[in-house]
Amino acid sequence: MAGTLTVRIRRSDGSGAAATPPGPPRFDTFRVEPEPKMNVLDVVAKIQATQDPSLAFRYSCRAGMCGTCSMRVNGKNRWTCRTQVEKLGTDLLVIEPLPHYPVIRDLAVDMAPFVESMRLVIPQFVPAEPGKATFAKIGSGSRERREIDPHIECITCGNCYGECSLVETNKAYLGPAALNRAFTLIADSRDGAARARLELVNGHDGVWGCHTQFNCTEVCPLGISPTRAIQKLKRKELLHALTPHLR
């Protein structure tokens, strides 16, 4: 096993999301003895429990199902509960909050911009046939489900939003996760709000804002490709725009 870990953690004073301090960031350095197959979440939890009880970060499930423990570790956004220290190949860890979010304190960020982006795309299912007594009979191997399924597993951890360089330059851009969600509903034949959604995600704050840089696809811990969903949406947008002229 590797020797003692050096852990540099970016701190902020805790004066609130509205007051992310300007100027150069402050980093505190901690030393942690590694344990077998230790993950990065264990490292920050150990620091909190034994060295600095005020160190602020979120986590919840520890099992890669909630995404709340996301942080930027050695330059990449990650679920810290699923990031084994050994596999980083270094005993220097540099831990920062997810970028593109206001910092509440230390490693805890304000998720509000992300939550708002999700809300804007009509994230709820709108039944095409409301009040229909029976549920849809859908074959598990149907073409439609094969198209949707690779995109449905998103747990809204927000790592992609923090990695997307378009979000960085345009705060109004809906971002990868929200557009991915829109795609799963627009492609679902049971849903009745596809047209409304297509109009909402049209334009430069929507699908056309994506420059296909694949940052979101590379960072997604679940291997989802929002880029792919967005390209499919672009095609649907074109068809939607052309349909009246094709009649």
């Binding site: 039944p127 009979k137 074959g139």
Partner: peptide, 20 residues
């Protein structure tokens, strides 16, 4: 459970299209 599907959930299916 059926109500959840009316609200958009989709459970895994049997070959005949009903909930597995």
């Amino acid at each position: 459970v059926k109500e959840l599907e009316e609200w958009g959930a989709l459970f895994d299916r049997l070959p005949d299209g009903r909930i597995s």
